[in-house]
Design a protein around this nucleic acid. Structure first.
Lengths: 341, 341
DNA sequence: CTGTTAGCGCCTTCAG
DNA sequence: CTGAAGGCGCTAACAG
């Protein structure tokens, strides 16, 4: 059995209170300090955070729920959040929804039951009801990357609509007129990016044939692959395609390679996120870059603020939300052909 | 404040014991059951796992420490472990070492303080001392993928030496004689794979020029990139290169693309792990496939066994270790040129 | 089947 | 600066 504070009381002859105070950084007589330190070492004493959490009603632990750990986007954000939280002396409890809303719901409940001080969520679900248990327990929640459809919460995102429009405008500037889009039909990000695509096309008075819109699946590599195959079969093939996320982009590249269709020669490709993939491909991809580190940074920052407020006000205040909008940047790779020359 | 068991006692008039029993699946009179259920719903009651853990001295939570969350290999295993543990009704606490042994050490301590019932570890460190705090607390630990240099623990691995030899023999069978290797110099996997490479070369009486051995860095994409660049500058260029892990493989592909060196025409490439990359590249990679799902499955299985044993024997028994060796498989892509034809 | 009583390991008043 | 006492929320014997 691991040593408890009692064992070190026996060892030192001091009282529990004194030892506890020492462990929490309080002032203790030098000789007592030494005695305690010696006992701690000798008995391999480690604080029982469970017991501590019970009395302080705070675990110094943040729950992080991601829609899919194997998704590069998620794991990069997890990485960043881990660093951020580590510096603040907070631990993090990571749970993976594997893109399953039901699992996500029970994951959140798990976090609530574990009494995390706050939750950062990259939701798989589109409806805020997955967070019900957190709301009931009055645990602060901050969304990262995605928002819900039914109501907006504290969060950090980019302006997805604008970003997609920027990408399309880039294509237009390069002389493209026949531009297709492949995007998911669920998450807020996909939906907003689709709107951005449409905005830009309309603003440029460009027609959008029905078969140029591929948005009847989830934003995965598998869907990107499938959608691109469809696109290649169209008689009036588009000269460019917008992939509204990293996964789709991967799938598109797979389909192009398989069909021996070259980019940018035969078709131009614009995607999102300048992650690993782009560096491994012979032809570097042109993409909308998101500030990956800042998602985590800002998310943690907002969450900490909320936790502080809750402690001070003795309750969650319900007046409005903070929504940080990060800026994006077009990375010019070599996957877009310039048709104006 | 979230509701406690006391609140639902007030609400129902029942005693704490009855309510507790109900919550833990015990038998209760139907009408009482209904009362409790109603109160639970009304008050949004959720068990406080912290308090429960304190008294049961078990958190039904497993700690998982990975060397790098952003590493595809890690995240796939995390995914699998999450599913496995979910089915068993266990939660998991994920911590990320970011390849930093110091961080890993404090992460493990964090898990210990959180009183996890067991730990699954994909270590960043090469020495078992990072797990000291877990050993002291007598928390069962199972290693996944990697072993330590100083002593072996319960774990699940592949036979890395054999796997690498298999890959080299494949190259030899295809007529290659000038085979280089790029591998890390730290983790057990890299070291073993290097030995396997040497075994196979020696068995075939093939010479290994010094400059064919690139093993003075960490097994990362960056190192793979750098090492491949060096390899390309050699006068007597090898006809094939063995990449001892996925990251290195990525880096190698990057370097080849950049230098406009084609594979398998100009140089053949064999790597490890048939992950995303292979599907995205035009030329499918020939690799040693590891059974990704089984790492997690077996790891969880062993850990659960240890936890059970500990509970029964009231202590960790120290007689020997379980080391499960998973089998591997050569996946034949198109990245190896057949020199025998 | 239900209720009463301890106590898990720790922190936090409050006296001394 | 130190000690004694109470309690965080829950479960685990018991006794009824």
């Amino acid at each position: 059995m691991p040593a408890t504070i009692k064992d070190i009381k026996e060892e030192t002859g001091l009282s529990l209170a004194t030892i506890s105070k020492y462990l929490n950084g309080g002032n203790v007589l030098p000789k007592n300090r030494e005695m305690i330190e010696a006992a701690v070492k000798k008995l391999h004493y480690e604080v029982n955070e469970i017991a501590r959490g019970l009395v302080t009603n705070s675990t110094r632990t943040i729950g992080v729920s991601v829609f899919d750990v194997t998704d590069m986007f998620c794991s990069l954000i997890l990485h960043q959040i881990g660093i951020e939280l580590g510096e603040l002396g907070y631990g993090l409890l990571i749970v993976d929804a594997s893109n399953d809303p039901e699992r996500e719901r029970s994951n959140i409940r798990f976090l609530v039951n574990k009494k995390v001080d706050g939750i950062l969520c990259l939701p798989a679900s589109t409806n805020s009801s997955v967070l019900e248990s957190a709301f009931n327990a009055e645990i602060p929640v901050v969304l990262v990357d995605r928002q819900f459809r039914d109501r907006s919460l504290d969060g950090v995102t980019i302006n997805n609509r604008e970003a997609a429009a920027k990408a399309v405008n880039y294509l237009i500037k390069k002389g493209h007129k026949k531009i297709a889009v492949i995007c998911g039909n669920e998450e807020s990000t996909s939906r907003e990016r689709f709107r951005g695509y449409r905005d830009a096309m309309e603003d440029a008075d460009l027609e959008i044939p029905k078969e140029y819109i591929l948005n009847d699946g989830t934003a995965t590599t598998a869907y990107g692959y499938e959608a691109m195959q469809k696109l290649l079969k169209i008689k009036d093939r588009p000269t460019a395609v917008l992939c509204t996320n990293y996964g789709i982009n991967l799938g598109v590249i797979m389909a192009l390679n398989e069909a021996q269709v070259n980019y940018p020669e035969d078709i131009s490709v614009v995607g999102f996120d300048n992650l690993l993939l782009s560096n491994v491909l012979k032809t570097r991809l042109t993409v909308v870059e998101q500030p990956m580190e800042r998602f985590g940074q800002k998310g943690v920052e907002i969450l900490m603020q909320r936790i502080r407020e809750k402690k001070e006000n003795k309750g969650v205040n319900d007046d409005g939300h903070i929504n940080v909008i990060l800026s994006t940047h077009m990375f010019e790779g070599e996957s877009v052909r310039d048709l104006t020359v």
